[in-house]
Every structure is written in C-alpha cells, then in structure tokens.
Design a protein around this nucleic acid. Structure first.
Length: 485
RNA sequence: GGCCCCGUGGUCAAGCGGUUAAGACAUCGCCCUUUCACGGCGGAGACAUGGGUUCGAUUCCCGUCGGGGUCACCA
C-alpha cells in the first residue's frame, strides 16, 4: 500500500495549495496513493486523518501516556538558556545537546512542574531517553545494510510550544497507528534511526523496517551536493513538464539510477511497461548519483522514438498548448502534422531526433510555410556555391525531372541523372575514387535541393519530406529560391 | 569538531579473494548513407592512498586522504 500523509507540523513552512501541488505532481507521474490525501482537503482510507496538524490530540494523548510512565517530562528551558548551554558545551569541547547532566528539567518534581505551569511559564515536552552513549545499537537497513551507532541519549523535544509534535514523535505515533511496515526515506534520516528505534521501543510499538535512499546529487563547481530546490531548476518536478521531457523518460532515467539492472531488463523487454520491472531495494546504490541531464535526454530520445506519430502529435500538442502558442498553432492541422511526424517513424530503425517536446518546433518548423519563409536567411549552400550553377540545377530539376508521383527509386535515379548531365558524379564512391573527373557528386547536388526546400543542410530523408510538402509547395519553394539568387 | 555513511573510467555502474576489470551515456575513429539522425564495428579511458591478512587482493582488516550526511521547539 502506498499512502500519502501530510507532515505539516511546522506551521512556518506552510505553503498555500501545497497539498494539491503534491497530489498533482505525483499524479503527473502516474503515482496515485492507495490511501491518504488525494486533494487539498480530501482524503481516503480508514487510518486518517492523514494530515498531521489534524492529529494534534492523538500526539498529545501519547505524550501524556509517556509522561505518566515517567518517559517524558515538561521542560521550561528558554531559547536563551539552551543557547548558553550549547556555548558552554562547545567551549568545553563536549557533545552539544540536551542529555545527561545537561538535561536540567529532567528531574523536576511533579509539584514544581505544576507550579511553573500554573504560573504561566512556557514549556515543551521532552522525551526522557533511557539511552547511553557508550552503548552501541545495531540496525539493519534495507539499503545501507548493517550500520552501528551509539545509542541515543538526547532528550529530544516531542511536543513543541505550539502543541504540535516534532517529526520524530509524529513519525513513531503515526507509523504505528497507520500500520506502516516500511519506511523508505532520504538518507539524511539515517542518523536519526537510534532515536526512532528508541521512541518505538518506549512507546511499546513495533518499529517498521527502514530503507534509506541516497539523494540525487549535483556537481557544483567540483563539489557534490544534494540537488537543491532553490538552486537547481531540475529539482522541481514542474521543470520536466515545462521542458516537455516525457514522464516516461523521467521514470526510465530514475529507474536507471535506482537499479542498475534496469538497463539490461529494458533491453530485453523493449515493449513492456516499466511497472513490470521489479524494483529491488537491496539493489539500490548506497551513495548518491550525480544527476546527468545528458543521459536523461538520451533516454528521452529513445522513448520518443518508440512513440507512434499520433502519440508524438498528441503529446507535443498538449505541451505546446501550455508553453508554446506558436507551435500549438502549427499543429492545428492534425492530418498534416501526422504526416510530418510520420517521417522515418514507426519502422525498425526510427529516427531519434527529439528528446523533449520543447525541441519539436525547431525540429519541424521548415515543414510549415509560415515558419519556412520567416526563418529563411542566406542560403548556406555548401560545396556547390556558384549562384548560376545553383539556379541551373534548380531550374533543371523543376522543369525536367520533378514528378511528385515518382517512387523513391525513380526519384533518386532522376537526381543521379541530373547530376550526371552536369558533370557531377552519380555515385559518391566514383567521386572519391576519381575526384578530378567531376565537379562534385550527387550528394552535393542533393544538398542544393535540400537547402532550397528546407533552408537547412541536415534533414531527414528528402524524398519523404517532398512527399509531405506536396507538389505545390515544392515548386513554390524552389521558384522562390531561384528568385532569391 | 563528535558520530555515521560512502570512495571502480568524465557520468551511472557490474564484479565482492585468482577476471584480458562487464555494460550504458558521453567522447574519438571507421563503416552504412544524397545530408543529418539511426544502426554496425573499433579506440582511448578506472579499482583514492599507505600498511597489513593471504600463495594471491579492486574484493577482507586498520590508518590516511577525499566526498556526503547529521548534530533544531525544520522536516
């Protein structure tokens, strides 16, 4: 069972619509909780409420229970006192914290406590740790394996001045009441395990199993650091939606990082849905992987290359409507767009030239007149760059050779013929063998055509492009190219 | 600083006592090809370091160095 509990016990950090954002973001990646929060104020499941701020009385009841058993106590120390204590400890070069002899309020009598409270003194509730720092505790983590720590001996606060619990306390109470068996969390929590285990013990609860995951890191001027929401755009899930990186790609990339055997599995099961892959906690890396955008985009490229033209169309249109109105407008004519996206797609070796939806416009713009004429600058004619010669080639082609009904073989034979008639090699190999016999080769002649028709030197197959463009457009573009010379 | 985790090519990583130390991305070259992309073939490139243990250490132990985490009335 996957449940979504909202840990909102720090009121300072509340964000408007935060819950809805979390729910929606998860849903964008097909993650829907079996129970817990499903909207800003909605939840499902029978272990609720799933929002911790609504469970205040529950935590307080357990805190009272601990106090009754002398396993917790009220603490009246002020922030200043605590600060002073810390300074002393630092100066004396001993461990900082509220423990042992430093735990001033630990042995306060009940009468004393009642009096202080009656006097209106502020207080919080602390856990009375039974631990000893000179004893070791062993923990078997599902990812990190066996780890050994000194026992916890800190009297950490469990109920704050505002009456809400700290994470540690809420964690033990909730995960017991919600019947949690596995806690999978970031490894910044690893060092809290001794405390948490102790809390479960003293509360009389059975502790869950823990799996501590290494965070994804980022290279920051030669230093590794956790991907940060503040500094790194790619740390936010919204970034992938904005860039148009398909969720399938993000998930595949993450799986690559999570389980290194995923790549092999994928190679052997190209058609299967990733949900069929069995993720193994014990195969997860113990140290944090550096985020690699290049690899992500490569995954994206492969993922998109396997999409049908229709899927590519639907997804790019969906993205365009949100982020690129110009593209959205181009894509209005679905029938034409399908032909464009169909070029060299849905075959055994599909093109891999789109890694995210934000690249689509650049990729297909020349297929649209409104973009083609707008973008067109000075023609980057390459090997053949004599204007008269180019004009000649284009004129000949359009007048003598072009027929939109030709099949691919005929189409290319004609280009070869045209090349031959103007002293260009019909085969590249012939040219390479005897370059002195020719002006250039058929590839160079094709480039002239390609540049005139697309104003680019690199494009997919020209035959297919011309088919999609259609007779009228092809003739119009060639004529316009001739005029421009 | 104390405590804890980690350290195989640029990156992600197999291997866990005897291997020519896999693979993927990136990179370079060649082939295919009318260009590009795809695909195929090949190249360069790694066990942080010093001591042990052992017939033999990338694999086990200790130290050093390096990276990361944590030491809140934040989670």
């Amino acid at each position: 069972m996957f449940f979504l509990r909202i840990e909102d016990t720090d009121q300072k950090r509340e964000i408007e619509n935060g819950i809805q954002d979390i729910v929606s973001s998860l849903k964008d990646f097909d993650l829907e909780p079996d129970e817990g929060m499903i909207g800003e104020n909605e939840e499902k499941g029978i272990y609720g409420p799933y929002k911790q701020s609504l469970r205040k009385e529950i935590y307080q009841s357990y805190a009272k229970y601990l106090i009754e058993q002398a396993k917790a106590y009220p603490c009246f120390c002020t922030a200043e006192e605590l600060e002073e204590m810390r300074k002393k400890q630092e100066d004396a070069k001993i461990r900082t914290g509220y423990y042992g002899v430093w735990a001033k309020c630990r042995n306060i009598t009940v009468e004393e406590a009642i009096n202080k409270i009656k006097n209106g003194e502020q207080y919080i509730i602390r856990f009375k740790s039974p631990g000893r720092e000179d004893r070791k505790i062993k923990h078997k983590d599902l990812i990190k394996g066996n780890v050994e720590f000194p026992e916890n001996d800190q009297d950490i606060v469990i109920i704050k001045a505002d009456g809400l619990p700290t994470y540690h306390f809420a964690h033990s109470v909730d995960d017991h009441l919600m019947r949690t068996t596995h806690v999978i969390r970031g490894d910044e929590w690893l060092s809290s395990v001794p405390l948490h285990l102790q809390l479960f013990q003293e509360l009389g609860f059975k502790a869950p199993k823990y799996a501590h995951i290494a965070p994804i890191m980022k290279n920051d001027n030669g230093n590794k650091r956790k991907l940060s929401k503040r500094k790194d755009a790619e740390a936010a899930v919204s970034y992938y939606e904005e860039e148009g990186i398909p969720k399938e790609a993000v998930k595949e990339y993450l799986l690559n990082i999570a389980n290194s055997n995923f790549e092999n599995w994928r190679r052997q099961n190209q058609e299967k849905d990733i949900s069929e892959f069995e993720l193994m906690l014990n195969k997860m890396s113990v140290s944090g992987a550096l985020f690699d955008m290049t690899k992500l985009l490569d995954v994206g490229k492969t993922v998109i290359s396997r999409f049908t033209a229709k899927k590519v169309y639907d997804e790019s249109k969906k993205w365009a409507k949100r982020h690129d109105q110009e593209l959205a407008k181009l894509l209005e004519d679905e029938e034409y767009a399908l032909k464009v996206f169909g070029i060299e797609r849905e075959n055994k070796k599909p093109r891999k030239d789109i890694s995210k939806w934000s690249e689509v416009k650049e990729n297909i713009s020349y297929m649209y007149d409104e973009m083609f004429y707008k973008e067109k600058q000075d023609y980057p004619y390459q090997v053949i760059n004599n204007k008269e010669e180019i004009k000649n080639i284009l004129n000949l082609y359009i007048e003598k050779y072009y027929n939109e009904l030709d099949d691919k073989q005929t189409w290319f034979d004609k280009i070869k013929e045209l090349s031959g008639s103007l002293e260009y090699a019909k085969e590249v190999k012939e040219f390479k063998a005897n370059p002195e016999l020719y002006k250039a080769h058929v590839g160079d002649v094709s480039t002239v055509l390609r540049v005139a028709l697309t104003s680019r030197t690199n494009t997919p197959d020209m035959y297919e492009i011309m088919k999609v463009l259609g007779k009228e457009t092809v003739e119009k573009r060639i004529k316009s190219a001739i005029e421009a010379l």
